[in-house]
Design a protein around this nucleic acid. Structure first.
Lengths: 211, 211
DNA sequence: GGGAAAATGGGTCGGGCGACCTATTCAAGC
DNA sequence: GCTTGAATAGGTCGCCCGACCCATTTTCCC
């Protein structure tokens, strides 16, 4: 019997996961609707397992995982994501996640993965997880895309919010040139050739919130 | 006892909805993972109710709803969406949907809505639905954004896929000028000032697929 | 048949944007 | 202490983009 904390902004999915995990013998000790709440509840409830969605308001799942892992090294975090992206897996693992699931998975896959992690398997690699799901991606070298810095994420979010280069510069009290430099770095990291593609990548990997 | 068809690309959510609706006394006659499959299964199974996600591969939920409603005027379609956007509600209703639910809803809300629609309520307006959900939006005039034409959606999708204006023109065998004209029309309809915002809007309202 | 909307194409203009290059400061880590 | 990387800033260049004009053809609905 493992104490589980659920963090997902979609109540529907939380309830569904909660019900399935309870049926499987897990105890749901709390539910969070955003990353910040997830971190707070993790502090408060000290769960053994955390099911964390990547795309969440206020604080995204990656950052929330990083914080939870930092404060509760024993807690095992399982990441949930809409779209599966190789780049995301690396970031999730780096942030301290133990496993990786896409929302294309079946309930059985979820329960199986949670059980594995709960049983103490140190790391269910994304590859193992995806093969376990019967879905295999990342053909070979798993070319990783280095995570964005905090400043870069901040700038990309502003761009996603509709700001031009000059507007971002004004909001952050820095030069437009600097914003351009950050953007160039973002494009290189996300393999995007313009702001549209960069923002879309950000949305896919869950570091960008849609307002 | 109503015959229900589920259409959502996330297996997890399909299972969850299916289980909840079955518990509530509905019969799940089929599940579709994309819009095309939804239309095909609707033809095949002739369900009374269809729960249709907006964001689906191959054919989006709006278009799928339009087709289903066209071929099966008696079938009642309930739209499901991630983000709730006023513009989407108008499009969904126009396409023939009977009700509108966000994934922020609770399972109880979903069951209640499905029951209402299944009982024969002609139209659960988005406003009623959202007030039923305890969430009220669209303060007054519900300023509608007219839906994009097929050509416009096609072009916006190409832009989302990373094409420049010239590349879209080449792919569609039309002049770059024409692409620009369509884009201008798209910007006006979606209240976007550039392609980044337009694509993001498309993603939010679910007419754009992320590849 | 007639009108509206969609789809097509053209022109011009200014500005934002991305590519490329360099430089300084500061903090963290080896 | 030295190096690395992040964040800051500057310059130039060419081009793509969006704003605002315009017209024609086709399609579809009344």
């Amino acid at each position: 019997m493992n104490r589980v904390l659920l963090a997902d902004d979609h109540q529907l999915l939380r309830q569904a996961l909660g019900a399935a995990l309870q049926d499987a013998g897990f105890e749901i000790v709390g539910e969070a609707a955003d990353g910040e709440e997830a971190v707070r509840l993790a502090d408060e409830l000290d769960p053994e397992l955390v099911m964390m969605d990547v795309t969440m308001p206020v604080l995204d799942g990656i950052e929330a995982t990083r914080l939870v892992h930092l404060r509760h090294p024993d807690a095992r975090v399982i990441m949930l994501t809409m779209h599966d992206e190789k780049a995301l897996a690396a970031q999730a693992i780096a942030a301290g996640a133990c496993a990786f699931l896409t929302k294309d998975s079946s309930m059985e896959d979820v329960v199986a993965t949670v059980r594995h992690v709960g049983d103490g398997d140190v790391l269910v690699s994304p590859k193992i997880a995806s093969s376990m799901l019967g879905e295999l991606r990342s053909p070979a070298g798993t070319e990783e895309s280095p995570p964005l810095t905090k400043r870069e994420e901040e700038i990309l979010q502003q761009v996603a919010d509709g700001c031009t280069t000059a507007e971002v510069a004004a909001r952050l009290f820095i030069s437009a040139k600097t914003v351009k430099n950050h953007l160039a770095s973002i494009y290189a990291k996300l393999d995007a050739r313009d702001r549209t593609q960069a923002v879309l990548r950000g949305v896919r990997i869950g570091i960008i919130q849609l307002h």
